[in-house]
Amino acid sequence: MIQFVDTSMRYDNCVALHNVDFEIEMGEFVFFVGPSGAGKSTIMKLIYREEKATSGKVLVGRIDVAKLSGHEVPKLRRRMGIVFQDFKLLPGQSAFDNVAYVLRALGVSPTEIRKRVLGALKVVGLIEKVDATPEELSGGEQQRVGIARAIVNGPAIVIADEPTGNLDPDSSLEIMNLLQQINRRGTTVLVSTHNHQIVNQMRKRVIALKSGEIVSDIPDGAYFINE
């Protein structure tokens, strides 16, 4: 369960979120939409504790993330998988190594790494490209590697901030379908996007933001906001 309770976030001189309240159950799929600067990325950063709310609370699984110590934040993040708009893959390293990178840092055994990485690459449909480097992959394929990396540790929540922002419409749809597929396996999935078409098509819960406030929260919504 993720819960924002009267949460506000202000940067030096600008209010990014203003008294935001919402609740997300485990296993949900939620889109965050809204014009540029609406506060979508801010919400995600608050959830994985890259930022701390200036007032109000952010609860993840009943834990007030603002109260976590520097030592506990990594533990929180190990239960999440984060997908980046610009993929953030390591250049010159194979898909396998990219997905294995964090597991190695966590001290997972080689046999276990092999099992989990191949499993994750299978889920994203890249099992035949384990040895390809990012330079040899299309944008959509690179993002699949990014998603494989996000799910390889079996996270409870996958957070994707504009995962299709750098992709063409076809690849975008594929990536969204992949996220939906991951959601069907029980993982909570949070996606921010500007892609109206896909949002309208997928009929998921849509939280629409504008100027740091929630303007609508519809269970099987479409994207009504005009940007």
């Binding site: 994985y48 890259e50 520097g70 030592h71 934040v73 990594p74 533990k75 929180l76 993040r77 190990r78 239960r79 999440m80 998988g81 984060i82 953030k88 390591l90 990178y101 964090v102 840092a105 966590l106 990396r149 540790n153």
Partner: peptide, 10 residues
């Protein structure tokens, strides 16, 4: 950045 976001210890 990757290590931080994926919860690798400081």
């Amino acid at each position: 950045e990757i290590l931080r976001m994926m919860g690798v210890g400081n």
